[in-house]
């Protein structure tokens, strides 16, 4: 599903971010990516949806060879991946339903089909009743649910989440984590970068720890392992 072979990444300004990372993430896996700030977690994640290109090494995601991927084909890769961010990245002037529909509109799904799928996605995240509300009138947890509905609506094979609970209170965080568990239960791969020790230590999954641009630990049902 996701495979990296000896991947190096150095930013144009000379900052090294990843130094020889090799990893395999299979279908329907649930993986936490942990590590100190600036260790390379975000780069690791951005490489997967081709936000960044590796300086060296091979990356395969959902059958796409990232290094050989033509610019024209990047949208196809992105459609097979759902991305969720710490800051939700919702459009403030669109309602919850419109935000979710946006992802469908952009890839050219007919309006009628979009309407049905948006309703399903909102029901799935438990916010069917908030369809016509603007993001500014929703709580952080609810906004993140909308963002997740948007990531899911195009039916991706992989969900990538960068600190999805970073801006949320513990209670909302758990709600979001239950959602990710359900997503994973239906067979979707979940890769989540997180700083949330309690979650990692409670909801035990595979843990990949990155430090100074290298994978220092990769264990099934691992723990957070940092004192921070």
């Amino acid at each position: 599903m996701i495979e990296m072979q000896d991947v190096w990444k150095e930013y144009p300004n000379g900052t090294p971010a990843l130094n020889g990372v090799s990893v395999q993430i299979g279908k329907s896996e649930f993986v936490y990516v942990v590590g100190p700030s600036g260790a390379g977690k975000s780069t690791f994640i951005k490489l997967m949806y081709r936000e960044e290109r590796p300086t060296r090494g091979h990356i395969f995601v959902n059958g796409f060879n990232i290094e050989r991927l033509k610019h024209r084909k990047i949208p196809l890769l992105r459609r097979s991946i759902g991305v969720v961010f710490q800051d939700f990245k919702l459009l403030p002037n669109l309602t919850a339903a419109e935000n979710v529909a946006f992802a469908q509109e952009v890839i050219g799904v007919p309006v009628r089909q979009t309407r049905r799928r948006v309703r399903e996605a909102l029901e799935w995240v438990g916010l069917a009743d908030k369809a016509d509300v603007l993001p500014s009138h929703l709580s952080g947890g609810e906004q993140q649910r909308i963002a997740i509905a948007r990531a899911l609506v195009n039916n991706p094979q992989v969900i990538i989440a960068d600190e999805p609970t970073g801006n949320l209170d513990p209670e909302s965080s758990w709600g979001i984590m239950k959602l990710f568990q359900r997503i994973n239960d239906r067979g979707t791969t979940v890769v989540m970068a997180t700083h949330n020790r309690e979650i990692v230590n409670t909801m035990r999954k595979r843990v990949i720890a990155i430090e100074r641009g290298q994978i220092v630990r990769d264990e099934a049902k691992g723990t957070y392992g940092y004192e921070d």
């Binding site: 024209r72 949208p75 196809l76 890769l77 991305v83 990245k89 459009l91 946006f102 952009v106």
Partner: peptide, 16 residues
């Protein structure tokens, strides 16, 4: 640009 960023993330083609 925020809208464009999200469009790119969810897989809009450049022409779109």
């Amino acid at each position: 640009r925020r809208e464009i960023e999200i469009m790119k993330l969810v897989g809009a083609t450049n022409w779109f």
